[in-house]
Computed example of a mutant assay.
Amino acid sequence: MKPTPHRLVSSLALAALALATAGGCASKAPSAADRDDGRFIVGYSQSNNAEPYRAQTNLQLKHYLKAHPKIKLLPIADAKQNSATQVSQVQQFIQQRVDVLIVSPTEPAPLTAAVQQACQVRIPVIILDRTVNTDCHTAFIGGDNYEIGKKAGEAAVKELPDGGDVVELRGLLSNQPQIDRNKGFNDAIKANSKIKVIEAREAKWLKEAAVPIMQQWLSRHKKIDLVYAHNDPMALGAYLAARAQNRQGQLKIIGIDGLAIPDGGIRAVQQGQLATTFVYPTGAKEAVDTLAAIQQGKQVGKKQTLGTTQVTKENAKQLYQQYDMSGKAN
Protein backbone atom coordinates (compact mmCIF):
# COMPACT_ATOMS: atom_id res chain seq x y z
CA MET A 1 0.00 0.00 0.00
CA LYS A 2 1.37 3.41 -0.94
CA PRO A 3 2.07 5.55 2.19
CA THR A 4 0.06 8.73 2.66
CA PRO A 5 2.07 12.02 2.51
CA HIS A 6 1.63 12.50 6.26
CA ARG A 7 2.89 9.00 7.03
CA LEU A 8 5.80 9.49 4.64
CA VAL A 9 6.84 12.71 6.38
CA SER A 10 6.55 11.10 9.78
CA SER A 11 8.56 8.07 8.64
CA LEU A 12 11.33 10.23 7.26
CA ALA A 13 11.50 12.32 10.40
CA LEU A 14 11.46 9.33 12.72
CA ALA A 15 14.16 7.56 10.73
CA ALA A 16 16.33 10.65 10.95
CA LEU A 17 15.71 10.87 14.68
CA ALA A 18 16.71 7.22 15.12
CA LEU A 19 19.98 7.85 13.29
CA ALA A 20 20.71 10.88 15.42
CA THR A 21 19.89 9.05 18.64
CA ALA A 22 22.15 6.18 17.64
CA GLY A 23 25.00 8.66 17.53
CA GLY A 24 24.33 9.53 21.18
CA CYS A 25 23.84 12.85 22.91
CA ALA A 26 27.58 13.35 23.26
CA SER A 27 28.00 14.47 19.66
CA LYS A 28 27.87 18.21 19.27
CA ALA A 29 27.85 20.67 16.41
CA PRO A 30 31.06 22.70 16.30
CA SER A 31 30.96 26.00 18.13
CA ALA A 32 31.98 29.31 16.60
CA ALA A 33 35.38 28.87 18.21
CA ASP A 34 35.90 25.65 16.20
CA ARG A 35 35.63 27.53 12.90
CA ASP A 36 38.67 29.09 11.27
CA ASP A 37 36.95 32.42 10.69
CA GLY A 38 35.14 32.51 14.05
CA ARG A 39 31.74 32.91 12.38
CA PHE A 40 28.57 31.64 14.02
CA ILE A 41 26.54 29.80 11.38
CA VAL A 42 22.73 29.92 11.39
CA GLY A 43 20.35 27.86 9.25
CA TYR A 44 16.75 28.98 8.85
CA SER A 45 13.88 26.95 7.38
CA GLN A 46 10.98 29.27 6.60
CA SER A 47 7.47 27.90 6.09
CA ASN A 48 6.55 29.83 2.95
CA ASN A 49 8.41 32.84 1.56
CA ALA A 50 5.43 33.69 -0.66
CA GLU A 51 3.40 34.90 2.32
CA PRO A 52 3.98 38.65 2.88
CA TYR A 53 4.32 38.14 6.64
CA ARG A 54 7.10 35.62 6.12
CA ALA A 55 8.84 37.71 3.49
CA GLN A 56 8.85 40.57 5.99
CA THR A 57 10.20 38.27 8.70
CA ASN A 58 13.11 37.35 6.44
CA LEU A 59 13.78 41.00 5.61
CA GLN A 60 13.76 42.06 9.24
CA LEU A 61 15.96 39.16 10.32
CA LYS A 62 18.63 40.18 7.81
CA HIS A 63 18.36 43.81 8.92
CA TYR A 64 18.87 43.11 12.61
CA LEU A 65 21.74 40.73 11.87
CA LYS A 66 23.73 43.63 10.41
CA ALA A 67 24.64 44.56 13.97
CA HIS A 68 26.24 41.12 14.44
CA PRO A 69 28.78 40.62 11.64
CA LYS A 70 30.11 37.34 13.07
CA ILE A 71 26.69 35.71 12.89
CA LYS A 72 26.30 34.32 9.37
CA LEU A 73 22.81 33.46 8.15
CA LEU A 74 22.88 30.83 5.42
CA PRO A 75 20.46 31.31 2.48
CA ILE A 76 16.97 31.01 3.94
CA ALA A 77 15.37 27.70 2.96
CA ASP A 78 11.83 28.07 1.65
CA ALA A 79 9.60 25.08 2.47
CA LYS A 80 6.83 26.47 0.24
CA GLN A 81 4.21 25.28 2.75
CA ASN A 82 5.32 21.66 2.32
CA SER A 83 6.18 19.73 5.47
CA ALA A 84 8.15 16.99 3.69
CA THR A 85 10.34 19.66 2.09
CA GLN A 86 10.82 21.36 5.44
CA VAL A 87 11.83 18.13 7.21
CA SER A 88 14.47 17.63 4.51
CA GLN A 89 15.72 21.21 4.93
CA VAL A 90 16.10 20.81 8.69
CA GLN A 91 17.98 17.54 8.20
CA GLN A 92 20.32 19.20 5.70
CA PHE A 93 21.12 22.01 8.15
CA ILE A 94 21.84 19.41 10.83
CA GLN A 95 24.19 17.59 8.43
CA GLN A 96 25.93 20.92 7.78
CA ARG A 97 26.41 21.16 11.54
CA VAL A 98 25.12 24.72 11.86
CA ASP A 99 25.63 26.46 15.19
CA VAL A 100 21.94 27.36 15.57
CA LEU A 101 18.83 26.30 13.72
CA ILE A 102 15.74 28.51 13.29
CA VAL A 103 12.50 26.87 12.18
CA SER A 104 9.14 28.44 11.35
CA PRO A 105 7.16 25.19 11.08
CA THR A 106 4.57 24.66 8.38
CA GLU A 107 2.81 22.08 10.60
CA PRO A 108 3.70 21.01 14.14
CA ALA A 109 3.52 17.21 14.00
CA PRO A 110 5.68 16.48 10.93
CA LEU A 111 8.46 18.82 12.13
CA THR A 112 8.59 17.51 15.69
CA ALA A 113 10.95 14.58 15.14
CA ALA A 114 13.30 16.68 12.97
CA VAL A 115 13.55 19.32 15.72
CA GLN A 116 14.22 16.55 18.24
CA GLN A 117 17.00 15.30 15.97
CA ALA A 118 18.71 18.69 16.18
CA CYS A 119 18.21 18.67 19.93
CA GLN A 120 19.81 15.22 20.20
CA VAL A 121 23.02 16.45 18.54
CA ARG A 122 22.92 19.57 20.72
CA ILE A 123 22.23 22.14 18.05
CA PRO A 124 20.26 24.98 19.68
CA VAL A 125 16.87 25.41 18.01
CA ILE A 126 14.79 28.58 17.90
CA ILE A 127 11.15 27.91 16.99
CA LEU A 128 9.78 31.07 15.40
CA ASP A 129 6.04 31.83 15.24
CA ARG A 130 4.56 28.30 15.12
CA THR A 131 5.00 25.56 17.70
CA VAL A 132 6.13 21.95 17.43
CA ASN A 133 5.03 19.06 19.64
CA THR A 134 8.16 18.91 21.77
CA ASP A 135 9.88 20.96 24.47
CA CYS A 136 13.26 19.84 23.15
CA HIS A 137 14.21 23.25 21.77
CA THR A 138 16.10 26.26 23.08
CA ALA A 139 13.50 28.97 22.61
CA PHE A 140 10.04 29.58 21.22
CA ILE A 141 9.35 33.11 19.97
CA GLY A 142 5.87 34.07 18.82
CA GLY A 143 2.60 35.82 19.48
CA ASP A 144 -0.33 34.64 21.57
CA ASN A 145 -2.66 33.64 18.78
CA TYR A 146 -5.57 32.84 21.07
CA GLU A 147 -5.34 36.33 22.57
CA ILE A 148 -5.12 37.96 19.15
CA GLY A 149 -8.14 35.97 17.95
CA LYS A 150 -9.98 37.00 21.09
CA LYS A 151 -9.18 40.67 20.47
CA ALA A 152 -10.44 40.28 16.90
CA GLY A 153 -13.67 38.81 18.29
CA GLU A 154 -14.02 41.69 20.73
CA ALA A 155 -13.58 44.10 17.80
CA ALA A 156 -16.31 42.22 15.93
CA VAL A 157 -18.65 42.64 18.91
CA LYS A 158 -18.02 46.40 18.83
CA GLU A 159 -18.55 46.55 15.06
CA LEU A 160 -21.83 44.61 15.33
CA PRO A 161 -23.59 45.84 18.49
CA ASP A 162 -26.94 44.64 17.14
CA GLY A 163 -25.56 41.31 15.95
CA GLY A 164 -25.01 40.11 12.42
CA ASP A 165 -23.79 37.42 10.06
CA VAL A 166 -20.08 36.68 9.99
CA VAL A 167 -17.91 34.67 7.60
CA GLU A 168 -14.50 33.37 8.65
CA LEU A 169 -11.52 32.82 6.34
CA ARG A 170 -9.25 30.39 8.14
CA GLY A 171 -5.57 29.64 7.68
CA LEU A 172 -4.15 26.16 7.08
CA LEU A 173 -6.32 23.97 9.33
CA SER A 174 -3.38 21.98 10.71
CA ASN A 175 -1.53 25.15 11.83
CA GLN A 176 -1.71 25.95 15.54
CA PRO A 177 -2.07 29.72 14.92
CA GLN A 178 -5.19 28.99 12.86
CA ILE A 179 -6.61 26.80 15.61
CA ASP A 180 -5.94 29.44 18.27
CA ARG A 181 -7.18 32.38 16.19
CA ASN A 182 -10.39 30.52 15.46
CA LYS A 183 -10.99 29.58 19.10
CA GLY A 184 -10.16 33.02 20.49
CA PHE A 185 -12.50 34.76 18.05
CA ASN A 186 -15.39 32.38 18.57
CA ASP A 187 -15.03 32.56 22.35
CA ALA A 188 -15.14 36.37 22.24
CA ILE A 189 -18.21 36.72 20.04
CA LYS A 190 -20.22 34.68 22.55
CA ALA A 191 -20.64 38.03 24.31
CA ASN A 192 -23.34 38.80 21.73
CA SER A 193 -25.62 35.86 20.97
CA LYS A 194 -26.94 37.67 17.88
CA ILE A 195 -23.58 37.35 16.12
CA LYS A 196 -23.52 34.17 14.02
CA VAL A 197 -20.69 32.65 11.98
CA ILE A 198 -22.59 31.49 8.90
CA GLU A 199 -19.61 30.30 6.83
CA ALA A 200 -16.05 29.24 7.67
CA ARG A 201 -13.49 27.79 5.31
CA GLU A 202 -9.78 27.14 4.98
CA ALA A 203 -8.04 29.59 2.62
CA LYS A 204 -4.48 28.50 3.53
CA TRP A 205 -3.34 32.05 4.48
CA LEU A 206 -3.41 33.07 0.78
CA LYS A 207 -5.11 36.05 -0.87
CA GLU A 208 -5.59 34.16 -4.13
CA ALA A 209 -7.39 31.37 -2.26
CA ALA A 210 -9.60 33.79 -0.34
CA VAL A 211 -10.97 35.64 -3.40
CA PRO A 212 -12.98 32.76 -4.96
CA ILE A 213 -14.21 31.58 -1.55
CA MET A 214 -15.53 35.05 -0.77
CA GLN A 215 -17.09 35.26 -4.23
CA GLN A 216 -19.02 32.06 -3.52
CA TRP A 217 -20.20 33.35 -0.15
CA LEU A 218 -21.35 36.65 -1.63
CA SER A 219 -23.32 34.73 -4.26
CA ARG A 220 -24.97 32.56 -1.59
CA HIS A 221 -25.78 35.27 0.93
CA LYS A 222 -27.55 38.55 0.28
CA LYS A 223 -26.30 39.85 3.61
CA ILE A 224 -22.84 39.42 5.13
CA ASP A 225 -22.08 41.89 7.89
CA LEU A 226 -18.49 41.07 8.76
CA VAL A 227 -15.52 39.07 7.49
CA TYR A 228 -12.98 37.72 9.96
CA ALA A 229 -9.79 36.64 8.18
CA HIS A 230 -6.93 34.96 10.02
CA ASN A 231 -4.42 37.14 8.19
CA ASP A 232 -4.41 40.33 6.14
CA PRO A 233 -3.81 38.75 2.71
CA MET A 234 -7.01 36.73 3.10
CA ALA A 235 -8.80 39.82 4.44
CA LEU A 236 -7.70 41.79 1.37
CA GLY A 237 -8.79 38.91 -0.86
CA ALA A 238 -12.24 39.22 0.70
CA TYR A 239 -12.19 42.97 0.06
CA LEU A 240 -11.31 42.47 -3.61
CA ALA A 241 -14.16 39.99 -4.05
CA ALA A 242 -16.63 42.34 -2.34
CA ARG A 243 -15.44 45.34 -4.37
CA ALA A 244 -15.90 43.40 -7.61
CA GLN A 245 -19.58 43.04 -6.68
CA ASN A 246 -19.82 46.61 -5.34
CA ARG A 247 -20.58 45.28 -1.86
CA GLN A 248 -17.48 46.49 -0.04
CA GLY A 249 -19.50 49.19 1.72
CA GLN A 250 -21.99 46.66 3.11
CA LEU A 251 -19.58 44.72 5.33
CA LYS A 252 -16.70 45.15 7.76
CA ILE A 253 -13.45 43.22 7.42
CA ILE A 254 -11.07 42.31 10.24
CA GLY A 255 -7.59 40.93 9.62
CA ILE A 256 -4.40 40.01 11.46
CA ASP A 257 -0.71 40.78 10.69
CA GLY A 258 -0.54 44.58 10.49
CA LEU A 259 2.52 44.74 8.26
CA ALA A 260 3.99 48.13 7.42
CA ILE A 261 4.28 47.49 3.70
CA PRO A 262 2.44 49.22 0.82
CA ASP A 263 -0.05 46.37 0.37
CA GLY A 264 -0.19 45.39 4.04
CA GLY A 265 -2.85 45.62 6.71
CA ILE A 266 -1.87 48.98 8.20
CA ARG A 267 -2.26 50.76 4.86
CA ALA A 268 -5.51 48.87 4.25
CA VAL A 269 -6.94 50.26 7.48
CA GLN A 270 -5.78 53.76 6.52
CA GLN A 271 -7.51 53.40 3.15
CA GLY A 272 -10.74 52.03 4.62
CA GLN A 273 -10.40 48.57 3.06
CA LEU A 274 -10.22 46.90 6.47
CA ALA A 275 -12.10 48.01 9.57
CA THR A 276 -9.18 46.96 11.74
CA THR A 277 -6.26 44.57 11.98
CA PHE A 278 -3.87 43.45 14.70
CA VAL A 279 -0.09 43.62 14.60
CA TYR A 280 1.37 40.15 14.72
CA PRO A 281 5.08 40.78 15.41
CA THR A 282 7.51 38.81 13.25
CA GLY A 283 9.82 38.09 16.19
CA ALA A 284 12.83 38.84 13.99
CA LYS A 285 14.46 41.23 16.46
CA GLU A 286 13.88 38.84 19.36
CA ALA A 287 15.30 35.98 17.27
CA VAL A 288 18.48 37.94 16.57
CA ASP A 289 18.79 38.93 20.24
CA THR A 290 18.43 35.25 21.12
CA LEU A 291 21.04 34.24 18.54
CA ALA A 292 23.49 36.77 19.99
CA ALA A 293 22.85 35.48 23.52
CA ILE A 294 23.44 31.87 22.42
CA GLN A 295 26.63 32.93 20.64
CA GLN A 296 27.86 34.54 23.85
CA GLY A 297 26.93 31.52 25.98
CA LYS A 298 24.15 33.34 27.84
CA GLN A 299 20.86 31.95 29.05
CA VAL A 300 17.83 32.71 26.87
CA GLY A 301 14.10 32.78 27.55
CA LYS A 302 12.53 29.40 26.79
CA LYS A 303 9.19 30.97 25.84
CA GLN A 304 9.11 34.52 24.51
CA THR A 305 5.52 35.64 23.95
CA LEU A 306 5.11 38.79 21.86
CA GLY A 307 2.35 41.34 22.32
CA THR A 308 -0.04 42.85 19.80
CA THR A 309 -1.50 46.26 18.95
CA GLN A 310 -4.85 46.93 17.33
CA VAL A 311 -4.56 49.05 14.19
CA THR A 312 -7.21 51.74 13.80
CA LYS A 313 -7.55 54.74 11.52
CA GLU A 314 -6.42 56.89 14.45
CA ASN A 315 -3.09 55.13 15.05
CA ALA A 316 -2.36 53.60 11.63
CA LYS A 317 -0.03 56.37 10.46
CA GLN A 318 2.05 56.24 13.63
CA LEU A 319 2.24 52.42 13.56
CA TYR A 320 3.29 52.42 9.91
CA GLN A 321 6.16 54.76 10.71
CA GLN A 322 7.10 52.66 13.74
CA TYR A 323 7.24 49.34 11.89
CA ASP A 324 8.31 50.47 8.43
CA MET A 325 11.50 48.66 7.41
CA SER A 326 11.73 49.94 3.83
CA GLY A 327 14.51 52.39 4.58
CA LYS A 328 16.29 50.19 7.12
CA ALA A 329 16.67 46.74 5.65
CA ASN A 330 18.43 47.48 2.38
Score class of each variant (00 low, 15 high):
Lys196Gly: 01
Val197Trp: 12
Ala200Trp: 02
Arg201Asp: 14
Lys204Met: 10
Lys204Ala: 08
Trp205Tyr: 14
Trp205Asp: 07
Trp205Phe: 15
Lys207Pro: 01
Ala209Pro: 03
Ala209Tyr: 10
Ala209Gly: 08
Val211Tyr: 09
Ile213Lys: 08
Met214Val: 15
Gln215Val: 03
Gln216Glu: 13
Gln216His: 10
Gln216Gly: 11
Trp217Thr: 11
Ser219Arg: 11
His221Ser: 15
Lys222Phe: 04
Lys223Met: 02
Asp225Gly: 09
Asp225Leu: 02
Val227His: 04
Val227Asp: 05
Tyr228Cys: 10
Tyr228Gln: 06
Ala229Trp: 10
Ala229His: 05
His230Lys: 07
His230Trp: 11
Asn231Arg: 10
Asn231Gln: 12
Asp232Asn: 10
Asp232Met: 09
Asp232Ala: 13
Pro233Ile: 03
Pro233Glu: 11
Met234Gln: 11
Met234Gly: 05
Ala235Leu: 07
Gly237His: 12
Ala238Val: 04
Ala238Glu: 05
Ala238Ser: 09
Tyr239Gly: 04
Tyr239Pro: 02
Leu240Ala: 15
Leu240Arg: 09
Ala242Tyr: 07
Arg243Pro: 01
Ala244Ile: 08
Gln245Asn: 08
Asn246Cys: 11
Arg247Ala: 01
Arg247Pro: 02
Leu251Pro: 00
Leu251His: 02
Leu251Lys: 00
Leu251Met: 10
Ile253Thr: 01
Ile253Asp: 00
Gly255Asp: 04
Gly255Thr: 03
Ile256Asp: 05
Asp257Phe: 02
Asp257Lys: 02
Asp257Ala: 04
Asp257Ser: 02
Asp257Ile: 03
Gly258Ala: 01
Leu259Trp: 11
Ile261Met: 00
Pro262Val: 00
Asp263Thr: 15
Gly265Met: 13
Ile266Asn: 01
Arg267Thr: 14
Val269Leu: 03
Gln270Ile: 04
Gly272Leu: 00
Gly272Cys: 10
Gln273Cys: 00
Thr276Asn: 12
Thr277Val: 08
Phe278Met: 05
Val279Gly: 05
Tyr280Trp: 12
Pro281Ala: 06
Ala284Thr: 07
Lys285Met: 08
Lys285Asp: 03
Lys285Gly: 10
Ala287Gly: 07
Val288Tyr: 05
Val288Gln: 00
Ala292Asn: 14
Ile294Met: 03
Ile294Val: 09
Gln295His: 03
Gln295Trp: 04
Gln295Ser: 06
Gln295Met: 12
Gln296Gly: 12
Gly297Leu: 15
Gly297Cys: 14
Gly297Ala: 13
Lys298Met: 08
Lys298His: 14
Val300Met: 14
Val300Phe: 15
Val300Glu: 11
Gly301Ala: 15
Gly301Cys: 12
Gln304Arg: 12
Thr305Pro: 06
Thr309Phe: 05
Thr309Asp: 09
Gln310Tyr: 08
Val311Lys: 04
Thr312Lys: 11
Thr312Ala: 11
Glu314Val: 14
